[in-house]
Amino acid sequence: MTSPLYIQQGPSPTWWNSPAIWLTAQGDPSTGPKVISPIVGKPYTVWVEIQNFYMEADTGGWNLFVCWGIPFTGTLPSVNIGQILNGAMTSAGPQGAPITVTIPGGTLTSPGIVTLPAATTWTPTLQNGGHECLVAAVYDEQDIGGLPTSILLDGDATWNQSYSVAQHNLSVIAISMMMGNIVKYPFQVWNAADDDREFTVEAWQAPLSQIAHFLPGVQGGRKVLENPGKVNRLGLLASDKAESTELEKAPARVAGVKVPRRGARPFTLGVKLDKGNALIHVTQRLNGRVVGGLSVLAMAEEK
């Protein structure tokens, strides 16, 4: 029997920080130490927790798709075969692989849960600098036929009983006094619509408590909460070649960002933090609605 399945999104308003997608070092079990700061060139296993809120067990018909991407906001960008960690590339585009295990039934308060590894290990490349941006989707192939790429990651859209999608987009940057006044973090703003669109991109500091769940995988663990810092400067520039002097003067909010249909625009976030730890969110809005986001934990080196 087929029951609707679900991948938990992050807590509102940071739906892009799903606790149901995580990394462990290759060879470690799903319960092993979680990795938040992957190292370029080192292989990792990507795990996805899938939930079933219905009393009937799910015995087939659903597929799981997993991919990685350069840190981005907005709808799911174009995915090439090298980014697919669970599934394959077909003539119709990327598709998930069938889920071959039974997912037990559950209830709304106590769902049946299965944790599955992606079929392919993920080895971060210089292309994304080791930053995490992982996407997972489950969908009922018998019902909708294939991966619904046109709607993936369209903000915190309500759960559809034929598919569920979640994203893990939290990066950690270490800020050394040797780096100068401001640290640069490149990312992309995506528009998967069939028409050109204008977005508002904004960065701001948020309470560290919002990522408390992930801190066991960060150096220092929960002690990160004990050393909060205040960001001195946040700047955003629509370029991947931004200079530090430009970011020092750049605003933290940029309106009217034009992104072509099914295309991307490079951006750079500039962060200035002298001491302590700080959580920064970057959001992409369309007509006032958040349709994309990412988070960065900045950790300043102790003097």
Rank of each mutant, 00 (worst) to 15 (best):
S209C: 02
F267V: 05
A20N: 06
T59P: 01
I151W: 04
P33N: 12
D240E: 10
T245D: 13
P228K: 03
F214V: 03
V290N: 09
N80S: 08
N169T: 12
N52P: 08
K272C: 12
S110V: 13
V189T: 13
Q284G: 06
K303I: 12
V48G: 07
P148W: 05
L269K: 01
R285E: 15
W62P: 00
Q188R: 14
G106W: 03
E301H: 09
N227V: 08
V282A: 04
V40T: 14
I175S: 10
M178N: 13
A278V: 08
L5D: 02
Q161R: 15
G74E: 01
T14K: 10
V254Q: 09
G276Y: 08
N277V: 06
A252I: 01
A136F: 05
Q167Y: 01
T283Q: 14
Y44A: 11
D240R: 07
D156K: 12
G221V: 03
T123M: 07
R253M: 05
S91V: 14
V231Y: 04
Q161V: 15
A136G: 07
M178S: 13
V231S: 02
G130W: 04
G220Y: 02
W16I: 04
I113C: 06
T107V: 12
V257Q: 09
R261S: 14
I7T: 04
V296W: 00
Y139C: 08
T45H: 03
R265W: 00
G145H: 02
A25F: 11
G221E: 03
E302Y: 10
T102V: 14
I173K: 10
P77Y: 01
E226C: 02
A255I: 11
V135E: 03
N191D: 04
T14G: 07
P260R: 01
T149L: 09
E56D: 14
A97M: 07
Q167T: 05
S37Q: 11
L153A: 14
D196A: 12
S150T: 15
L170K: 00
T200H: 02
T24S: 06
S176M: 13
H213E: 15
C67M: 10
D195C: 01
V165I: 09
L64H: 04
N181E: 13
L273K: 12
K42H: 12
F65N: 03
K241I: 09
W122S: 02
P111A: 08
T100H: 05
L116V: 07
S162K: 13
G293V: 08
A264H: 02
G41A: 11
A88Y: 09
N80P: 04
R197W: 10
I99F: 06
Q205C: 06
F199V: 00
N160R: 15
Q188V: 12
A88K: 15
P111E: 07
L23Y: 10
P4M: 09
T107G: 11
R265C: 02
M55T: 13
K184T: 13
T121I: 11
L247N: 02
I151D: 06
I103N: 10
S3Y: 01
S295D: 02
K184M: 05
T59K: 07
A278T: 06
L286V: 06
T102F: 07
S150L: 05
P13W: 15
P38S: 14
I36E: 15
E49H: 03
E243Y: 10
G27P: 00
N80Q: 11
R262G: 13
I70L: 08
T31M: 00
H168Q: 15
G93W: 03
R233K: 13
G276C: 06
L116Y: 01
S244V: 08
P186Q: 10
Q284M: 13
S239G: 00
A57M: 03
